[in-house]
Write a protein that binds this DNA or RNA. Structure first.
Lengths: 206, 206
DNA sequence: CCTACCGATCGGTAGG
DNA sequence: CCTACCGATCGGTAGG
């Protein structure tokens, strides 16, 4: 209750900055994020914003990590208790489609993760590396689930797991474009159909 | 031969500016394009650059149109003389994969078209509208080819053309990510395999 | 967390 | 196509 700022207050301010950063970057890109705009939106000084992170790049990296955490919470989190293999995979695919279709609830400009992947795919530096590392992490998570399914006999033993990951990645990139660019109302249905088409006729090695 | 600038010289300068704009924007995004950087790269003054287009937004729109023209020339152009239907479609799909894998020859940062689509998908204004219009144009071109194939009996009469367009869009977005972000050497093979998997088992309506 | 400030760069314009 | 300039904004720092 004292006017002096407590550690908890500081952490709360930091969280508010991060929330707003994710929202802004989802529309303008992580590069389009500016300290001045953040400060104005939050009623802080520029120094007040920057003090929590040090540099703009550190703030961008924190926003990217936050986006990845939101993705994990909304797409994988609700399916943690499902059985490993195809059951959990289908649950994740359904949550993933919901997440992209309702992305605006958390990201006004759509999934920051997708935006950042394209934004930094051909640059060099810490942001490129972080984006590549995080997309790689989630793709390996998907591959692990598919290997579980193959081990359990839910998919052929010689399933080409990497081909499925490639096709699922494409399905959700296409859904993101349909939702964000075209506001296509049938995107979710098409994405879930594409997922089933991939899984029902799984590709095998060679 | 006179030192006075001719109309041809002016058009050549304009073309040089456009080339460089496409190259820079493919890495930094159309928003990351700056007049000062262009001027420095080309040995011109900022006013010299801007004079050809009027405003930065007009330059961005011109660069986007140029990117679409390059896409058409490299992906559809080589297949103009092929038979309409599946033959031409497969030719286009092969050229499209080549185009993305060797995109760096024309776009140092990868297909500007893909980058711009994500960059402006959730903004408003002339650039968003132009991106949506151009991606729509090429998707309709694809749909027309697929309807040709269905009319000719190369695909079932009740083929769900829009579902195939959705899946092909995803395949090439996934290939772009594999090439640009992961430098994946097997991307082209996986993309062409995904195309065949879609076409050999075509989705039908309802 | 603030005020006050730094040099650099932004898009764009005046005038030639 | 140039020089010379405009106000605005950028990321960041000093000092408290």
């Amino acid at each position: 209750m004292s006017p002096r700022r407590s550690v908890a207050d500081a952490l709360d301010t930091r969280a508010r900055i991060l929330d707003r950063s994710v929202a802004l970057a989802s529309v303008e890109g992580l590069d389009g994020l500016t300290i001045g705009r953040l400060a104005a939106d939050l009623g802080l000084s520029k120094a007040g914003v920057l003090g929590h992170f040090g540099t703009k790049e550190a703030l961008q990296l924190a926003a990217l990590r936050e986006a990845s955490a939101i993705f994990g919470r909304l797409v994988w989190g609700p399916n943690n208790d499902l059985a490993p293999g195809l059951v959990r995979l289908r649950g994740v695919c359904a949550s993933w489609a919901d997440y992209l279709v309702h992305a605006r609830d958390h990201f006004p400009g759509g999934c920051l993760f997708t935006t950042a992947a394209v934004e930094y795919d051909s640059r060099t530096g810490p942001l490129h590396d972080a984006v590549a590392r995080l997309t790689g992490f989630w793709q390996r998570r998907l591959a692990t689930e598919l290997r579980h399914a193959a081990t359990l006999g839910q998919l052929p033993a010689d399933t080409d797991v990497d081909q499925i990951v490639f096709e699922l990645t494409g399905t959700y990139l296409s859904l993101n474009q349909a939702v964000q660019l075209d506001a296509a109302p049938d995107g979710q249905r098409r994405a879930l159909r594409a997922v089933e088409r991939t899984l029902v006729n799984p590709p095998t090695l060679v």
